[in-house]
Structure formats: structure tokens, C-alpha cells
Write a protein that binds this DNA or RNA. Sequence first.
DNA 1: TGTCCATTATAGCAGATTCGTATAGTCGTC
DNA 2: GACGACTATACGAATCTGCTATAATGGACA
Lengths: 291, 291
Amino acid sequence: MRLRQLECFRALMLHGTMTRAAELLGMSQPGISTMIAGLEHETGLSLFLRRGGRLQPTPEAKLFYVEAARALEAVENASRVAAEIRSGRRGHLAIAAYPSISINLLPRLLSQFARNKPELQIKIITRNSATVRELIATQQFDLAVAELPLDYPTSHMEVFSYDCACMLPHGHPLAKLKQITPDDLDGVPFVTLFRGDPIYQQLASAFSEYGARWNVVAETEFFSTACQLVAEGRGVGIVDPVVSKPFTEGLAIRPFKPRIQYQVAILSPTHEAPSKMAQDFAKLLRRGLRA
Amino acid sequence: MRLRQLECFRALMLHGTMTRAAELLGMSQPGISTMIAGLEHETGLSLFLRRGGRLQPTPEAKLFYVEAARALEAVENASRVAAEIRSGRRGHLAIAAYPSISINLLPRLLSQFARNKPELQIKIITRNSATVRELIATQQFDLAVAELPLDYPTSHMEVFSYDCACMLPHGHPLAKLKQITPDDLDGVPFVTLFRGDPIYQQLASAFSEYGARWNVVAETEFFSTACQLVAEGRGVGIVDPVVSKPFTEGLAIRPFKPRIQYQVAILSPTHEAPSKMAQDFAKLLRRGLRA
DNA sequence: TGTCCATTATAGCAGATTCGTATAGTCGTC
DNA sequence: GACGACTATACGAATCTGCTATAATGGACA
């Protein structure tokens, strides 16, 4: 059964005469005639009665028409979907990310990205960075965003490094300084990430190097929580200047010395070629992490 | 987009290598290769990455595969439906009939007919004979069964005539006779069809011709009701010997003279060619009305 | 490193399919 | 009986299909 036969059959059923069907399909009447003859021969159905040089569809033709039309639509749909995929209007995007990114950065970027993409399916999974790393290894995600260091590095990894800054409640005396060092924070109540976090370790070294007393009054899991506590005056803290930016509204932000490095990476599956969709979104994500 | 391309694509997605896909499709590997190249060119999609002389489906290929497989299935389904139509396993049968036929004859015949026809759709509409005649004129039914005479005859009409017989309650004195005439029924309580019915008119003439008194004690719409009343001893009556046979269990049936004719017709739409399904069922129906 | 093996890609050719033009056949209408 | 509208058939050119032969690629392994 050939597609052209079905097309001719549909046009003929819809327009009654071969002459007219031929016009609409942009072909000659004998062309339609032979197509229909072929279809009748191959299906073994008498689709039209020839009465007085005219065609009359048989009941069998009407039954078959339903399926023929459905089949043609399915093929035409496949064709349309191909065009959608090619132009990037259709696809899916499965992203695994750790909470700060997932809550703050992704919704904004994705809603921007999804404009003009009516058939885009988005999936976001939020896990801590270690789990994100495992998920990307299972190849079930197109992209992942995790904090460094990872237990073992992935081959497709794009790293973004930030120098953390000191955050202070608005009107805090130290806000007058242009740059803040551990000496300035000697004994000052301090909000930090948990003990296991690289940030914690870097801070501990920094204070000990400067011989200053690090007065930790709170440990939190995320920067966002730390920001909240600082805003409420529990102490000062340290924060990355890009990803956590939305949480630092109304806080004073000052450069911190020595450098406390915070690293984030975009991860891609290794064994799988990235989809065009994923590549396009990765560009946007890169910009978002750079800004 | 050609069907063969989609078939090759599906086989390749399912079996990983062109060599294997070619085997399963019964064609050569270069054949698959050119088909896939054509599909990629026409859709504008890179469906496979050529890495190390091997193929790896791209994410786009996976997206497109869903639609391609769906389209192929729809076409294959159309093909299968054509075979079902041809072999008479698929079709529909819309029948309009008057009550006696619809209740008694049709269910038996249809259940027999529907065996081995998994995709047969049956529609029965039960109306009085006048309405049946109108329905068939609207061309919405494949077959109809109505009593004669009709207001105006249809061109496609097959008539079955029956000589009505006298029915008597079991053990009725007249049951000893081989044949019954109006003389035998002079003054005997009689159950008949309604005054408007041709049977009524024929009976009235018969009694008047024989100079016998016709003692009508009940008028009914259907033979079945009349049979019921006779069985309960309300009187004797008259019945057609074929269509109403199932209602005369336990009654004595004797030939009646003069002839009271009861006529039934199978009607077909005039402007529409009958479907093979309708023709096949008409054969069965003919046998049922003749027996 | 070189050979073997499995795979895909390309070229060239024969046959099938498609589709146009030309033309004949059929039927209803005027 | 001519005309008009339609369908069917014949035939040829262009295209498509799918084969064989062969090249190219890269991994495995000695």
C-alpha cells in the first residue's frame, strides 16, 4: 500500500470526481485513475462503482476511507513533528539541579527558553549535588547543575568559579569597609554553611591563617537560609555573588579576602550525544551562570 | 516522506545496525543506507551520529521515532482493515424492521451471522412497517423488513407471501378438523389484528363471503399478542405460519380457507449500492423468511 | 604496527514506479 | 446526433528503488 495511492483515494472521496481530485493534487486525471486502479487491485476491494462513466463510492470504500484518512494524518503528523524537531519547537529537556539553582535560576531561564516552543516538555529534578552527580551518570538527564567538588569528575563538565563575598545586615558597622578580611570579623557572630561543605573548610583555614577567632553562631545547608539569618541580624556571612544574588536583596555585600572559592558545574551525559534542545538551553544556562 | 524510509528507520532504531535491519527487511545494507540518508536529507534531521563506522541514534531520532512508528502502525492498520473488509470480517449492518421480525427473527439470524466477524457493528431499529418504509428511503439503512402493502412500493423489494393459518387453543373441539373455514368459526370468539390491518380486511371479506358471523372478541397490534390471547383460551385466531411460528408453541395450527395472505418484504436502499455485508446478510434473511 | 572483522558509504546499473500526453470509451443532455 | 464531462488505456520519459561491487572507517588482537 503506497502513500500516494491513499492520497489519491482521499482526494477522490472528498471531491467526487477524478478530474477534480487530480486538479487538487496537481496531477493528471489518468494518474489518479491508475493510482486508484492499483489501490483497488492491491486491497482487493471494489472501491468505486463505474456507473455511466461516473464513480460512486461503494460502502466498502466508505469503511476503508476512515482508516486511510487516519493513516495519512499520522504520516502527515510525523512530517510536521520532524519540522518541529528541526526548528527546535519540539523536544524535551530533563534537568537535574541542586536546590539553589533549581529554585532561583532555572524557572526564570526555562520560562524564557520555552517561549516559541509549543511542544517542549520540561522536567526538573532537584537533589543535592552528590545525587545530581549520580543522576547524570544514569544518562537520564540532558543537563545537570551541581556544586564542586564532585567525588569524581565527569568528562563533560563546564566549571564556573565565583569568589564569595561577605554579606552584612544593612547598616552594620563593618559595611563602611571596602573589603573585609577575617581580621575584621574577629569574634563577630558568623553564619556559615555546614561543616562538611568546602566553603566551611575554606573559611576555617582563612580565619586560622589570619589568626582571627571565627565565631560561628549558625550552620545552614543552603546559602538562601544563611542570607535569611543575616538579614534578620543573627550575624554576618559569606555568599556567592551570582547564584545567590536574589537572596541578598537589602544586604550589604563586600568583597572578602582571602579568596573563598565557590564552584558550580554544568554536567552533560557522557555516552549520549546532547540534543539540540539541550545544547540551546546550555547556552542560556551558561549566560545565566556567568552574569 | 516515503513509507519505505520510515520502515527502514524503524528497523534501524529497533535493531541498531543497518546490516541487521537490512536482513529483517529482506533487503541489502546499501539499500538501507540510501533510504536513511534520504530520510535525513528530507526531514533535515541528523538522525544518527556516525562514530567509528557505527551508528548512534541522536536524541532527535528518538523523538521522531515515536511519530514514525505511529504513522507506520496507522498505515499497517489500514492495510489490515482492508483485508478485513474484503473477507467480510469488518463492516456494519444497519437494519430497520417491524417488531415481530426484530424481536423474533433478527436476533437469531444476526448472532449466527456475526460469528467469525469480530469487527461487525450491528444496528437494529424497530418501527412499525410504515415508518420502516420511510427510514429506508432516507438511505440510512442497509436493509429493512416491512409488511405489505406499503404506501408506495420501493424499487428494490423482495416479497415473501404466506397463507395464514387458523390457530386454536390446545384441545379445542375444532382442532379435529384438517382445514378450517369461516363456516366452522360461525360465532366462535375470534382474536384478530386491528381494524386497519390488511389481515382484518381480508378476514372480514372471507366471513361475509361465507355468510358466517365473525365474532371478534379482541383486536391486537401484533400476531404475538394474538397468539398469547388464543393460548389463554380467549378465542381462536389467525396467524402467519413462518414469522410468528415461535409464538404458536402449544397451539393447534390448521390450514384456513379461503386464503388470507400475509406479505413481508425485504427492502434495500435504491440510490446506494448494497455493501457486501448487507448482501451476505440478505441471503441469510431470505432463508429465514422462506423457512 | 599491521591484519582481520564488522560496519557504513558510494557508484553504477537494471528494473519498477510514477506521471505526463494522447486517445478512446461511456453516458447524459440539449 | 453532437457536445460536454467524465473515466480508462497506451506509451514513453523521468524518477525511484534496490541490487552488486567496492571503498572507507575503526576496533580488536596478535
